[in-house]
Simulated scan of single mutants.
Amino acid sequence: MSNATLERARPRAGSPPGERRTRRRGGWLLLLAPIIVFDVLLFLAPLGKLVASSFTDNAYGRVLADPLVTRSLINTLTIALTTTVVTVVLGYAIALVLWRSGRVMRVVLFAVVLLPFWTGILVKNFAWAVLLQDNGLINGFLQNIGLIDAPLELLHNRFAVIVGMVHCLLPYAVFPIFSSLTAIDDRLALAARSLGAKETSIFGRITLPLSVPGISAAGLLVFIVSTGFFITPVVMGGPGDMMIANEIDYYARQLTDFSGAAALAVILTVLVSIIAAIYQRVLKAGGQHETL
């Protein structure tokens, strides 16, 4: 190899750190380019068009003046918060059982938890309708054992909506909580027992505090998903249980008011984003307080 060739190769081998970082950054951008193009074309561009459409024809003024919209927003937040609390509590209990189960039982329980993912939401809703209707299995069982004389109103109300949503969203709570539980060192509980701590004390002072990250992630995930439910309030709820997604559908399909539907979608997105940001800020402040 000639000296000229060696001289040309030497700067590449001994390139400065800044140049190497630039090349690495260019390589990462090259790998991310398909994802960026995909997001821009299929998410950001339609979202931008939606936001632009919401500012036409005084859409915000019209929808905010509609009392049904206000009621739908209140219903959405109330049902979503209730669903989140119930789902996280049930999810935590199931995650604890999964955490403490053996391998065979854990596989069985995982299959049961994942069952909602294996069936469509419409199938699940109609299955619950069969169970909760006046002549359904639950009312029939309660009447047969003598607990009630007349059927209970279990369907087409807010209770039924929350039941259907909790059933659909339960896996979203179980897996983040289970992940945080499996990260807890078992030696902490052993050390506490060796010092005479009771199981309730171990749970309250070790297990529960160390699983808070999973609980917070599960709560945020369930709340965000639950605000967009559409078919469950239609199948299982009553006229007074319609959520904002149903109102968007009404504006788009019945009234053919696409700017009003776009305004409602933007309002819901902004509202959920604000609540999520406050939630994260409160959790961060709480974590800093505990650290101090």
Rank of each mutant, 00 (worst) to 15 (best):
L30G: 11
D241Y: 06
Y251I: 01
A262G: 08
R205N: 14
Q288M: 12
F159T: 15
P16I: 04
D241E: 14
L73N: 09
S216I: 15
G219Q: 09
G91I: 05
V89P: 06
L181T: 07
D39Y: 02
R20E: 13
L221S: 13
A129Y: 01
W28H: 07
I74S: 07
A183Q: 15
G120Q: 06
F230Q: 00
I79H: 06
A183P: 11
P239S: 08
L81Y: 03
T200V: 09
L41V: 15
Q133V: 03
A127V: 11
A191W: 02
N75K: 05
L208N: 04
S226L: 06
Q280A: 14
R25Y: 14
D186S: 13
V235L: 15
R21K: 12
S201L: 11
L31C: 12
G237K: 08
G204W: 14
T227V: 15
W118R: 00
S259L: 01
I35W: 11
R158L: 03
L220R: 07
A45D: 04
G164W: 02
H167W: 05
Y251N: 07
G140T: 10
A218E: 07
A150N: 09
P46S: 10
N75L: 01
L90C: 12
A65Y: 09
F110V: 09
G26D: 05
P151N: 02
P171I: 08
I202G: 05
I145Q: 00
L220E: 02
G240E: 08
A173Q: 07
T269I: 09
I278D: 09
S216A: 15
T78S: 11
F178T: 00
R62K: 13
G286Y: 02
R12Q: 09
I79L: 15
A218P: 07
A217V: 12
V40C: 10
N157C: 08
V222F: 02
S194P: 00
L115P: 03
S201W: 13
S54T: 02
R21F: 14
A265E: 08
L114F: 05
L30E: 02
G204H: 13
L132C: 12
S53C: 05
V86S: 08
P233W: 09
L181R: 06
I231A: 15
I162A: 10
G286K: 04
R71Y: 08
C168R: 07
A111T: 08
V272D: 10
A218D: 06
D257S: 12
G102D: 05
N246E: 12
F55R: 07
A9H: 05
S259A: 14
G146K: 01
F203K: 04
I177D: 00
R12I: 15
E19H: 10
T83S: 13
F38L: 12
F38Q: 04
L147M: 15
T84I: 04
Y172R: 00
T291K: 11
T291S: 12
D57T: 10
V104R: 14
S194G: 15
M242V: 13
T232V: 15
A150I: 02
N135F: 14
V235F: 07
T232Y: 01
S15H: 05
L255H: 11
P209L: 11
T76E: 06
T56K: 14
S194Y: 00
T5E: 13
D134C: 00
W118K: 01
L190Y: 08
G102E: 05
